[in-house]
């Protein structure tokens, strides 16, 4: 059975502190120079190592190597994807720059590659102290030399974007499809008999839920918090209340907004009812319930929700 699924993109700009070695390496790239790390055994590592693998001492000796090198291994990338150095077919290669003892990985813009091929760096026109200051490599020998100087780069930013298809479980699927019809359902654990809303594997017993139970769209506030702090993407103006609402017929509360009442007047045990969006806007989402508001019924006694605190 195909359950509900939806695209999900997660994106974050990672900012990383570079430290004395990578900071100088990145500053070098900005000036069109490649620096390698010389370790105690005399080997020159590109990209540079921050610590000597033999002595474990911090690396301090950075030496300039050539922007030209030799392909040590390669493969062909026929279908470039988001974020890669080139948007047309290109080669990936391990390239040992002249003067370095270790190869580095980068893209090569060439119609064909072979082991032993001579390649040179093609620099990005607007460089900022990042590995992407090397746009890619290309066949040939470099006759350009970089300029010297420049303060070490302290921070580099790398945007990360990942795309997924989020797939619901059969229980979540059933719950969301019921919401589309204006109903709230839970499912009962066959072991402890508790009704979970939304339905889920019972975290106490580790078994899948079975019996489907329709619960009310009203219930009581078990506990709540007043949101006073503004944050990015906030849709309401503070102060407002987010509460745990135990729906009648459910054994676990859901989290929702309590509106239509002053934040200061919300209290534990308060009876509340769902305020649904206009029916024309219903879909398979919990957002069909816009918020909860006081129902006007007398408060529930403490004993009726004590076990949920």
């Amino acid at each position: 059975m195909d359950t509900l699924a939806a695209p999900l993109t997660i994106a974050f700009d990672y900012t990383r502190s570079l430290g004395p070695v990578l900071g100088r390496f990145m500053a070098g790239l900005r000036e069109r120079r490649v620096l390698g790390a010389r370790t105690s055994d005399g080997r020159v590592h590109v990209p540079p190592l921050e610590y000597d693998p033999v002595t474990h001492e911090p690396v301090t000796d950075l030496v300039e190597v050539s922007p030209t090198g030799t392909v040590v291994s390669w493969t062909w990338n026929a279908r470039p994807v988001e974020g890669q150095p080139l948007d047309r077919p290109f080669g990936w290669a391990l390239i040992r720059l002249d003067g370095a003892d270790t190869p580095m990985l980068h893209a090569v813009d060439a119609s064909e590659l072979h082991t032993g091929m001579r390649v040179r760096i093609r620099w990005t026109p607007a460089r900022q102290g990042h590995i992407r200051d090397i746009e890619c490599f290309e066949p040939g020998e470099s006759d350009m030399s970089g300029s010297t100087g420049g303060e070490p780069v302290e921070i580099m930013t790398t945007p990360i974007r990942l795309h997924y298809t989020h797939t619901t479980s059969t229980e979540e699927d059933r719950y969301l499809r019921a919401l589309e019809q204006g109903r709230i359902i839970g499912q009962r654990c066959p072991a402890c008999r508790k009704v979970y809303v939304p339905p889920r594997v019972c975290p106490a017993d580790g078994v899948a839920p079975d019996e489907v139970v329709e619960v009310a769209d009203r219930g009581m506030v078990t506990t709540f918090c007043v949101v006073n702090v503004p944050f990015a993407g906030q849709r309401l103006t503070p102060p407002y209340v987010v509460a745990q609402v135990l729906l009648d017929g459910a054994d676990i509360p859901i989290s929702h907004l309590i509106l239509g009442v002053e934040a200061a007047d919300v209290r534990m045990g308060m009876r509340v009812a769902a305020v649904w969006r206009d029916r024309s806007r219903w879909s398979t989402t919990p957002e069909n319930i816009d918020h909860f508001e006081p129902s006007g019924e007398p408060d529930a006694p403490y004993e009726s929700y004590a076990e949920h605190l």
């Binding site: 990383r16 988001e82 974020g83 150095p85 590995i131 992407r132 790398t158």
Partner: peptide
Amino acid sequence: PYTVAPLWPG
């Protein structure tokens, strides 16, 4: 994360 991941080599 500094010298390889930003190229997304796969």
